[in-house]
């Protein structure tokens, strides 16, 4: 089981690294989709199959489709990385983050994962966390308006061509 976690985590970090460092936008979107799929596998192993399914369908499915659609409008431009923070700052942040992690590992203060299967979360979501549902409804309405903004240029162009014909 440890080997499986190790394998998934290594693949996840590799996919995330490729998604952020690769030059083309379309390739970055595809690597991001792989990152989402591997994240959902990890979440499934950690005992949350419901969230894993939602992450897989939304993160690896819907977001990738939106990315590809948007890139087809924007154009797949090559991206040049330009570092605009001092190199010493980047190095010190990395050293501090991994230093804290190293200390936690050395003194063995990382709590053990139990990977218990969650019970039905319906009661938690619909009764105890009603405010979350209201916020999610608001967010989804914003998302619909966002999608309208995405398709607006294409629709406007299509209508213009139609009018000219």
């Amino acid at each position: 089981m440890t080997f499986l976690y190790l394998l998934i985590m290594a693949a996840l970090l590799f996919a995330a690294h490729k998604a952020t460092r690769i030059k083309g936008l379309l390739k970055a979107a595809l690597w991001l989709s792989g990152t989402s799929a591997l994240t959902s596998t990890l979440i499934y192993l950690m005992g949350s199959p419901g969230i894993a399914v939602i992450e897989l369908s939304v993160g690896a499915g819907l977001v990738t489709v939106l990315f590809v659609f948007s890139i087809s409008i924007i154009g797949d431009e090559k991206i040049t990385g330009e570092i605009f923070i001092p190199k010493w700052l980047a190095i010190s942040i990395t050293v501090v983050a991994f230093g804290i992690l190293g200390i936690m590992t050395a003194i063995d203060s990382i709590p053990q994962l139990k990977a218990v299967q969650a019970e039905l979360i319906a009661d938690t979501i619909w009764v105890d966390r009603k405010l979350d549902i209201d916020i999610q409804a608001g967010l989804i309405i914003s998302g619909v308006l966002g999608i309208l903004m995405i398709v607006a240029p294409t629709t406007a162009r299509w209508m213009k061509e139609k009018r000219n014909d």
């Binding site: 009661d123 966390r129 967010l139 998302g143």
Partner: peptide, 21 residues
């Protein structure tokens, strides 16, 4: 775990909306 899953669900929704906008 129930609370964590509920929060994770909210994160997924918010994450998608951030991407869309």
């Amino acid at each position: 775990m129930d609370l964590a899953q509920s929060m994770a669900l909210t994160i997924i929704v918010a994450d998608t909306i951030v991407a869309v906008i």
